[in-house]
Simulated assay, not measured.
Amino acid sequence: MSVQSAEVRTATTNPLQPLAPDEVRRTAQILREQRQLDEQVRFVTVSLHEPDKREVLDHDRNGGPVPERAAFVVLYDRGHQRTVEAVVSLTSGDVTSWQVVEDVQPSVMLEEFFSAEEITRADPRWQEAMRKRGVTDFSLAMIDPWAAGYDIDDPAGRRLLRPLTFVRSREDDNGYARPVEGLVVLLDMDRMEVIDVRDHGVVPLPPKAGNYAPELMFDDDNRPAFTTLRDDVKPLEITQRKGRASPSTGTR
């Protein structure tokens, strides 16, 4: 069935209602069919493309027609290293805007977070730096990828991440309590590889884990810090007696 059929129309009458899951799926389908997207293109964000305020007010106050329902999409084409902003009309089933945005990078995607961890852990230079710090169980390393920013002179305009490394003392430990100082890694996420590892010298890891869960907290002699827990804490209750605000008028 063509995505340009009447089924792409939304059932909501609130022009500012966030996109429903089926509307997100329709948006992706329309783009794949009309722009012939290949496997290198990633959907970064899919959100509501808000209609003009005058149309919203006319619908809300004067009973005017429901404004066009549309989605705003940010895509990243890894094969061509470019960012695209698109608008898809869910009312007509058409891609109404397609714009390549030069010299920008979209936000880091979830799959890139996971890939960055795997790539970093597998790099021999990173592994050697961790061994110098006494860490041999790399599964305890928590790798936190961050965008590299614009302080790097990179005329190629690559998609760069700069992950930070932390070390847990156990699998369910608070990793942020024990940062690995002086170890800087640079990743190219288009090529999925480590392009630079710089070790500025070993700084001893913090000796204590920074856990807040009672069962994971220990004293200086490595004994449980808490043997009993309070059982007299009163329940927290949150109520909204007059109900929620109306999404269209703001009244109760």
Rank of each mutant, 00 (worst) to 15 (best):
Q17Y: 07
E7R: 07
D196W: 02
H59Q: 12
P179V: 06
P15L: 04
S92Q: 14
T251D: 15
R69I: 01
T96Q: 10
A71G: 08
G134P: 08
P124N: 05
L31Q: 11
L161P: 00
G250K: 04
Q40E: 02
N14W: 11
V185L: 07
L19C: 03
N14I: 12
D60M: 07
Q17N: 08
Q127A: 05
E111D: 15
P224Q: 08
D60N: 06
T91Q: 07
D219N: 14
G201W: 05
D173L: 08
N174P: 04
S107F: 03
V41I: 15
N62G: 03
T27H: 06
D199H: 00
R42S: 11
E112S: 04
L183M: 07
Q36D: 08
L229W: 06
S47I: 04
V87C: 00
P15N: 03
V167I: 15
V44H: 05
R191N: 11
V88H: 13
E102I: 00
E7N: 08
D154L: 07
Y176Q: 15
L205I: 12
F43Q: 05
Q240E: 15
A86W: 09
R168V: 00
V88G: 06
V203L: 01
H200W: 07
D38A: 02
A156Y: 07
Y176F: 15
G182H: 09
V194N: 04
K208D: 12
W126G: 07
L19N: 07
I30V: 14
G64S: 06
F138Q: 05
P124K: 03
S2W: 00
W146K: 12
S107Y: 03
V3C: 01
Q40N: 08
P179I: 09
R82F: 10
L110W: 09
V24A: 10
F166W: 05
V104F: 03
D52L: 07
G201P: 11
T45H: 08
I152C: 01
R244M: 04
T27C: 12
V100P: 09
E111T: 12
L229S: 04
A177W: 11
V84M: 12
L236G: 02
E128L: 11
L16F: 03
R223G: 06
E39S: 15
P247L: 13
Y212V: 14
T12L: 02
P145S: 04
E50T: 13
D219Y: 01
P15V: 02
F72P: 00
P214H: 06
N222E: 14
H80W: 01
V44A: 11
Q81Y: 04
M130Y: 11
V95F: 10
S89R: 01
A148P: 10
L140V: 03
A147Q: 08
Q34A: 12
D52C: 00
L160Q: 02
V100Y: 09
T12W: 01
D231M: 11
V104D: 00
W146H: 15
M192T: 02
T165Q: 00
I238D: 01
G64P: 13
Y76D: 10
R158W: 03
Q81D: 15
Q17I: 00
M130E: 11
R159T: 05
A156S: 13
L48F: 04
E181M: 11
A209E: 14
A213W: 07
A225Q: 09
V184E: 06
P124R: 02
E181I: 08
R61E: 08
V88W: 13
Q4N: 02
A116M: 11
R230M: 11
P163D: 13
W126K: 05
R230H: 02
F166G: 00
